[in-house]
Design a binder for these strands. Sequence first.
DNA 1: GTCCCGAGAT
DNA 2: ATCTCGGGAC
Length: 269
Amino acid sequence: MFDHLDHDAFRTSILDWYGVYRRDLPWRGDPDPYHVLLSEVMLQQTQVHRVIPAYHRFLARFPTLGDLASAPTADVLRAWAGMGYNRRALYLKRAAQAVREGYGGSLPRSVEELERLPGIGRYTSRAVACFAFGVQVAVVDTNVRRLLSGFAGRQLTEKETETLADLLLPSGRAADWNQALMDYGSLVERARPQRSTVPRQRFAESDRFWRGRIVDVLRLHDALSMPLLLAALPEAGRDEARIRSLVRSLHEEGLAEFAEGTDTVTLPT
DNA sequence: GTCCCGAGAT
DNA sequence: ATCTCGGGAC
């Protein structure tokens, strides 16, 4: 399907570029599976410059996967402060527990097993397998997809991109190649001026926004009655019904709870 | 990015 | 039964 393309020329130019512009990041060249996993999960939602300090802070708080597995969810959510997308911190802790129960505390080495862990999909499973265990598989993110679509001459689906990316892997250099592709895709290929206009307004009224704010407040207190929670969110107006319903949904997802049938809200135990 | 769900295809 | 693909949510 992609045999008409000049693989070697493409490989060479990308690797040459990487040889010159490669960035050295805290987790690069560090094969510790937990470190790789943490960095990749953080990178899923946040830019590199914001991840770096958070990465060190989180690791100082939870040095090993085992520490994370046995830590109270509330502590993990607190250590995640400023990262956004709290659900990922939750998945990360659950993945740590799953690894403890199912693999004796050591992350599995295969893409298939890694992908069964909560919060780990096609991208992260491949990233961990490759960067931590040297498995020769391609890692595909949106930048790589855009880059390879350009190489192929048409818009590729995620599946097609994966096929082509695996086909392009230089033997024995999967890790370098993947880093090179992602770096190139994000640093060079992207020439689009960011949408600096408008759409910022709507978010401030969304459920997603308020759910985040609720968890923010909860991080600062061991327990809060509904009245106090409402008081801590003055901008929300006195819309108790809405806040209560948001807390319920947070509860269903394991991000908050009502202390034994009362109206006192807390972070999960 | 990952998850979840519905829908069409194998 | 298993897989691929939008669509929306976080």
